[in-house]
Design a protein around this nucleic acid. Structure first.
Lengths: 289, 289
DNA sequence: CTTGACTTGAGAATAATTTTCACCCAGATG
DNA sequence: CATCTGGGTGAAAATTATTCTCAAGTCAAG
């Protein structure tokens, strides 16, 4: 078993005879470098011979040098990953080197998605999906960034034949909301749950008898209170005011789950609709060069 | 740089010729196994020759097979540490319980973002950001889902005073592209990099002397070849055809990094612009209850 | 002193890896 | 239609890495 190879080397090395010990020390001094070296290089660096390095591998139960090498590299990756979460929560400042910033952002986003998933209520998602499948009309809206999310989700749902309209524009959303009725679904997206336009449109839809669904980060926001069902997104307002940026990932994730749930409930039809859509889009693609 | 080797293999493999592609597929099918195999074993498993495997290593910038092997092992350790294998790659079927599906999706998205980050070239991001900061005009476009991403990014950039237009509409994008010139920037988004409209618009922008930037999952796609700079997104086409869904996260992440890089380069102005924007948006919010 | 168990590295033997080269094939050209 | 070109490929040669064998050295115990 590869696990713990470095630890075992650390433990056993001091008890080894002269030449073997030097090999162990050379590896411990820089495992990553050792993984990259050939057996010859490593032998030279430890002041011994290739034969001794092979023996060293055998001592630790590897079939040969290749085995040791792979084990070292694996542990090296493991260690790198362990350091990963470290930087989360760190604010990104104007002078941070970009690669560090990229790492922090990735960690933050990744974590955000996990959090979103953790606190998402599958029951609510299922209810929303069932309502969407049964609805005569579905309306999705938001403004600004959330509007773009709404449009994106609308496009997806239309591709699997859900009768869906999506707006990033407040007036159009309001107009459409007024036309909804019993058995329809309205989904309003707002990170903070305080955007007036979204509140008005969702309120209007509710008044007309449609099922209202809020997608927001705040379960106690006006939007949430006004809605029949609430899908909460997670968002941490950290890292250079990136709360807004990250919120999009969270919103998309929540809507992805709704999409999948809808697709599951209309599997046959979904597959067929996919085929059609893909064929239609193909004609807009250029050939492989 | 060793990081992101698997991601890169994933991205580039489909564009490779026959025999090389088979090698890539064999590796992707079981990276851990590949790391343990000799070049000969791997050649046999992929139905090609050792020579081809060596060529494959060169394509991805490794000095030889040993380099690839170590990189694979490293990533393998990385993945193991993060417990990411939990369910990833599992297709979501119509009968899966929804909470399981949510878990799989979260793991997949999370991993996707990590992969995207790992294979993103900070230097390229910096170049794009610098060009955006210096540009007289910036144009961002895509169609369909990528179009929504473009619109979202455009909105963000405008909020920090970047003179930016964004389109999800092919004709408008083309019209605007024709008006660009030296010192302007055009960013085209297309998951597969084969969408004709995006190709045309970016080509037009390039002809007019603008810096052209591609955001695509395929580094060898027509879109990438045609562009001055390429920002590659990662995407695994797994889980219930969710490739397209997941691609959005990846695209957004890449553009987030550009946004942050731009913000870093115009810190004063960014902060000020933020204040103004937030105040403007406040008036559309309802008061805390 | 011997002896013998244990280490070690030189060099031979083997196996893996890389390079070279001739071939094939698809598409371009005359 | 014949010919050429150029990329892609695997067989085999060349190189290099790895493993094995063995003689020699060391050292503690008799």
């Amino acid at each position: 078993m590869a696990a713990g190879a470095l630890g075992r080397i650390q433990t056993e090395t001091p008890a080894l005879p002269e030449a073997l010990r030097r090999v162990g020390e050379a590896i411990l001094a820089d495992p990553a470098e050792a993984a990259r070296s050939t057996i010859i290089t490593l032998a030279e660096r430890s002041g011994s011979s290739p034969a001794t390095v092979t023996r060293f591998c055998r001592v630790f139960g590897f079939a040969g040098y290749a085995g040791l090498r792979v084990a070292l590299a694996t542990e090296n990756g493991r260690a790198a990953q362990a350091n990963w979460d470290a930087g989360v929560g760190h604010e990104i400042g104007p002078t941070d080197p970009l690669d560090a910033a990229i790492g922090v952002m990735a960690a933050a986003d990744s974590r955000l998605i996990q959090e979103t998933a953790a606190q998402l209520d599958a029951g609510t998602v299922a209810k929303v999906a069932e309502a969407v499948v049964a609805a005569r009309r579905v309306l999705i809206f938001g403004v600004s960034t959330s509007g773009a999310v709404a449009v994106m989700m609308g496009g997806r749902l239309r591709r699997i034949r859900v009768p869906c309209w999506s707006h990033a524009d407040a007036h159009e959303a309001l107009a459409d909301a007024a036309l909804l009725g019993e058995g329809d679904v309205a989904i309003g997206i707002s990170h903070q749950g305080r955007t007036r336009e979204v509140l008005e449109s969702l309120g209007e839809a509710g008044d007309r008898g449609a099922l209202t669904v809020a997608v927001t980060s705040f379960a106690r926001s006006p939007l949430a209170e006004l809605s029949d069902l609430v899908l909460t997104t997670a968002s941490r307002e950290t890292t250079f005011r990136l709360g807004g940026l990250a919120a999009v990932h969270s919103q998309l994730f929540v809507l992805d789950t709704v999409y999948v749930a809808v697709a599951q409930r209309t599997y046959e039809q979904t597959n067929e609709a996919f085929e059609l859509t893909i064929r239609a889009l193909e004609s807009h693609r250029v050939e492989r060069s």
